[in-house]
Nucleic acid binder design. Structure first.
Lengths: 96, 96
DNA sequence: CAAACATATGAATAAGTGTTCATATGTAAA
DNA sequence: TTTACATATGAACACTTATTCATATGTTTG
């Protein structure tokens, strides 16, 4: 058995969380799944910028999507996302 | 009461984890507290590079240090560090 | 106090990255 | 099959950042 994880991969995963635009997208999706334009509007970002970031989130399996008519609905891939975010929050809260 | 966390701060925290040098340092410290030169040797990094990264880890309260004679011993600040690392590992392991 | 050892720091450089702009792809409606 | 809508993509630019090199700070030993 080989449970070993490449530390580089681990760093790459955290790198995804290390951008405030992506964090804000994840938080939005934590509340409700939504399409690209809705995210862009709510976060006051360009449609292009959101799309670029969603691609990165998807590649890292943090979000998934499905087509629904014209639009594409994005949603969180699993609950690791919210767990990881919570751990980060806790660390910040205790460091006050 | 205000439990709110600035999402930018959260991103900044994860940014710290998003570098393989820092992750490797944290993993070494997870096994045993150590001084700068030992880390540099074991990780095959410059003493300067290690020192620079330790400074960032310290600023973010992920590690602490104490002086012991000539050398300065670094160690993990709390167990959030290992918890956060574990969450990341789990996500990677399940995505296979 | 001087020499040796351990760590920290600052400037410079190279590599990586997020956003914007323009445009392409793909889907639904007329 | 045009037209309009929703999203994706690629190139360019500005910005951040990790490492290296040289050197400074601080501690112990002779």
């Amino acid at each position: 058995m080989d449970n070993a994880i490449l530390l580089g991969d681990l760093a790459d995963l955290f790198k995804v969380f290390g951008d405030s635009s992506r964090i804000r997208i994840l938080y939005e999706l934590l509340e409700a799944e939504s399409c690209v334009n809705d995210l862009a509007q709510r976060l006051d970002m360009t449609q292009s910028a959101v799309s670029h970031q969603l691609k990165i989130l998807k590649m890292n399996k943090l979000v998934n999507n499905r087509r629904e008519g014209k639009q594409i609905i994005y949603f969180l891939a699993d609950d690791h996302v919210s767990t990881i975010l919570s751990m980060g929050r806790e660390h910040l809260l205790e460091g006050r």
